[in-house]
Simulated scan of single mutants.
Amino acid sequence: MANLASLLDTLETELRRLSLWSDVPPSPEALASTAPFAVDQLTLPQWLQWIYIQRLRALLDADRPLPHGALVKPYADQYFDQQPQLAAQKLLEVIDRIDAFLGRPAQYAQGA
C-alpha cells in the first residue's frame, strides 16, 4: 500500500491537473470554518488543498497520530457529480485510497 505522503502528493498533482489548485489562499475566516468540509466557506477543492492536505502533512511531519475513519469520498462523489465537465475519476480514486489508508468507518468498509 502506498504511504500517505505519496497519496497526498498524488492528490495535489490531480488537483493541479484539473486546474483546481490555487496560489491564493482563502480568507482566514473561511479557513476557520467549523462546518464539515467547511462547506459554508470553501469549495471541496479548496478544502482539500488548504485544510485536508495541510493538516495531514502537518500530522505526518510532527509524527502525530493520524485521524481514523475519515470518509471524504462520498462528499467528493457528490461534489464532482455536479461538475460533469471535470474528468475527476483519478482524483476520486486517490481520495478513496486515502480514505482506505486512514481506515473507513465499518459501515463503508464492505466496498473497499
Rank of each mutant, 00 (worst) to 15 (best):
I53K: 09
V24F: 11
R55Y: 03
Q41S: 10
D96M: 01
A30W: 06
L71T: 03
S27F: 11
Y75L: 07
A106K: 08
L4C: 02
V24C: 11
I53S: 06
A58T: 10
Y75C: 02
P105S: 15
Q85G: 11
A5C: 07
K90N: 10
P36W: 05
W47H: 06
Y79T: 06
S6N: 14
A32S: 12
F80N: 04
A35C: 07
K73M: 03
V39Q: 14
A76F: 03
A62N: 11
L8C: 08
L31C: 06
Q78F: 10
D63W: 02
T43N: 11
R97W: 02
A35E: 15
V94N: 07
A2K: 12
A38W: 05
T43E: 14
A58W: 04
D23E: 15
F80R: 11
D96K: 02
E12K: 12
F101V: 10
D9W: 05
P65G: 04
G69P: 02
E14G: 13
T13G: 12
V72H: 07
D40Q: 09
L20F: 01
E93F: 04
R55G: 04
L86V: 09
A88I: 05
F80Q: 04
L92S: 03
E29P: 01
A32T: 00
Q107Y: 10
R104Q: 08
H68A: 13
L91C: 13
P65V: 03
L66C: 05
A106F: 00
R97C: 13
L8F: 01
Y52I: 05
R55Q: 08
V72G: 08
E12P: 10
S19T: 03
L102A: 06
M1T: 07
L20R: 02
P84W: 02
P36Y: 09
R97V: 02
P74D: 09
A87T: 15
Q46D: 07
Y52K: 04
T34F: 07
A38C: 10
S6Y: 10
A70Q: 05
L15R: 09
R17W: 12
P26H: 07
A38T: 04
A76M: 07
F37D: 14
A100K: 04
Y108Q: 01
R17Q: 15
I51G: 01
A35H: 13
A76S: 03
L48I: 14
F37Q: 14
Q46F: 05
L66V: 00
A109G: 03
G69W: 00
D63R: 12
E93T: 04
A32R: 13
L91Q: 04
P84Y: 04
A58C: 05
Q110W: 11
V24Q: 09
D96S: 06
L91M: 11
P36C: 09
R104H: 02
I95P: 02
R16A: 11
R17H: 15
F101A: 06
V24Y: 07
T13F: 13
L59F: 01
P28E: 03
R16E: 12
D63L: 11
I98W: 03
R16G: 10
W50L: 01
L42G: 05
A109N: 01
A30V: 04
D40A: 12
Y79H: 15
D81Q: 14
E29M: 10
L42W: 04
T10V: 13
D23S: 15
W50A: 03
Y79K: 12
M1I: 08
L92I: 07
A87V: 15
P67F: 05
L31Q: 00
R17F: 07
Q41E: 15
P74G: 09
T13H: 14
Y52F: 15
D23C: 14
L86P: 08
D63P: 00
F37K: 14
